[in-house]
Design a protein around this nucleic acid. Structure first.
Lengths: 343, 343
DNA sequence: CTGTTAGCGCATTCAG
DNA sequence: CTGAATGCGCTAACAG
């Protein structure tokens, strides 16, 4: 408590509790206290307890900025995602779970929305000195991603992008869509329409899966793709378009769950029974798919595996400088009650 | 200490470009370079240009951790929010917009979901040394919020909480619900049912607004509250419950938009016309409300004002140590096509 | 406008 | 296990 009045007011003692205070309170050296909070070897269990108790007593909280500044690696992994995308929310949850399993990793979120693109979000994250970037379905152009990948390890999730230097982790979109088509065909369907993603990441691959599966079963003449999108609105519009035409297919494979639910809603309102009159399928296995009015047959991306892979890649690339690669997650068919034999 | 001056400044000895490198490249002092990046007064426009050009040339990016470590205030405002809540996503967007208008403020997001509560999220944020915390509809108990508020300025948004020391910014929930009831009554409705929020923040106040408005118009005998929730599923369940009873009301005021949309969907599938057979209202003016199959009459919380207020309060309290207060946003009725005269 | 200096809170030596 | 010393990248205060 002996402030030296001769010197200009030291801005240090502003009431902030630091590691020094903890060490003094616990009666040990700062190095030891540091070891305890880093979970590093070199302290007995007894001292660990003592130090932690002291910290709690005086209200100490580690300063992760200072720690990151000092160590070579900040332990921060940046994640850019679309704040409006429910599917991204699910991935964020899984990423947190994966990160919580490692004591040394923290996540920094960078939200994206129509007025703030992935580049902006990434820039803010990099100023915080993230070691690596995980980008969920980035909407910026490939060369912008490549530019980022040149500066920092980048892992692109849920979008196919040929950016050299960026890892890719995504489901086999083509194979996933083929899965539901095979399922519908096995049920006896032939007139199967695909409502596409209208430009959302994965649109082309899923459409390719549809075409491939139809052709593989000699159903070329039934091939029917109508424009859609990844939102519920897009599904509603597609439903409207579908009903506006002369004949109805016996099944519709939508681009994703949200769109499939919008579509189902419109069909339901138009007094069509699902799956009695028409079968509907989605993609993603979003939480909404299971709890929809008609639980949706869909394709699971195995988020656990996907996020774990993404995080591991991000950390490994940041630490060991290993080479970027492509990681394709095998999709799985989830059968629910929105599909049945044709009418 | 004699680096080869002929070669373009190598990316630092440790591979990272710092302010020192920029200063050397621009041929000026570090202080000047610092001034430029902080947008602080004390440099001519010419030098600013020169320094920025040099920075770009060698690929410099400010280190916000180091800056925050040094200055008294980190400039970081932490935001905890429910990653599954579309309504929160809208607030996040507005917060970013508000933060972007101030050069000195950055947002740090802390996601919340069933396995990770607001306390966990806040803890992580505080380790990053946020100056203040904005909590969106926190689900933790009041005393946990109070505990946080004792350590750092806390602004609670969209939840009424009597935690001493925490600011509150929220819409007048009671008045908002009353607004739609008045609107329905003016249209000629008398049998108006309220589907409540089932415990979500704001449930009680909105129900109170319903009761007050009904009583104010002598409609005690028509008072009818059924349990609901804030999700689409809850709306669907409420619709099912409603139709399972003998008689139908002529209008339903739901707790929020998402629930109202679920409700509408179920009513639509049950071949009831909206608003022909029954009027439906929501709350929040979420993006989904405008683009629903039947555009929803709802209550706007004026997010712009709400978020600006929240951010200003957070910053002011962190900087000037002013006292916490309560800030009630006046709600506004948004009339769309989901309401009409009774059948 | 410049250059110098002194830390912010912490991790990491290194010799005891 | 201790104690002291060094510096991460930056801001701020100061005298030129």
């Amino acid at each position: 408590m002996s402030d030296d009045p001769s010197r200009p007011a030291p801005p240090g003692r502003r009431g902030r509790v630091t590691l020094v205070d903890v060490a003094r309170e616990a009666g040990c050296s700062v190095s030891l206290a540091s070891i305890v909070f880093r979970d590093a070897p070199g302290a007995s269990e007894a001292t660990r307890e003592r130090v932690r108790a002291a910290a709690k007593r005086i209200g100490y909280r580690p300063d992760s900025r200072a720690a990151g500044l000092r160590r070579a690696n900040s332990g921060l992994i940046g994640v850019t995602y679309d704040v409006r995308q429910p599917f991204h929310a699910g991935i964020i949850e899984c990423l947190y779970q994966a990160a919580d399993e490692r004591r040394d990793i923290a996540l920094a979120l960078g939200a994206t929305y129509p007025g703030r693109d992935d580049s902006r979000a990434a820039e803010a994250l990099l100023r915080e000195r993230c070691e690596a970037l995980i980008m969920l379905g980035p909407q910026i152009r490939t060369r912008a991603i490549a530019a980022l990948a040149a500066e920092v390890p980048v892992v692109v999730v849920a979008r196919k992008v040929r950016a050299p230097g960026a890892d890719q982790v995504r489901v086999d979109d083509s194979g996933g869509l083929a899965l539901v088509i095979e399922h519908l065909i096995a049920l006896g369907h032939r007139a199967i329409t695909h409502v596409d993603g209208g430009g959302a990441p994965g649109t082309k691959a899923r459409r390719r899966g549809y075409l491939k599966a139809m052709r593989a079963h000699g159903l070329e003449e039934f091939i029917d793709v109508i424009p859609g999108g990844h939102t519920g609105d897009a599904g509603v519009s597609a439903g409207r378009a579908l009903l506006g035409r002369g004949s109805l297919p016996t099944a519709v494979a939508a681009f994703n769950d949200i769109s499939a639910i919008g579509l189902s809603t419109w069909l339901g309102i138009s007094q069509l029974g699902i799956p009695g009159d028409i079968s509907v399928t989605g993609f993603d296995d979003a939480p909404e798919a299971a709890s929809a009015i008609v639980p949706l047959t869909t394709v699971s991306q195995n988020l656990q595996l996907m996020t774990r892979t993404a995080l591991d890649r991000a950390v490994d690339r940041a630490r060991d400088r290993c080479l970027p690669g492509e990681h394709i997650i095998v999709p799985r068919l989830i059968t629910r009650t929105s599909t049945g034999p044709p009418r």
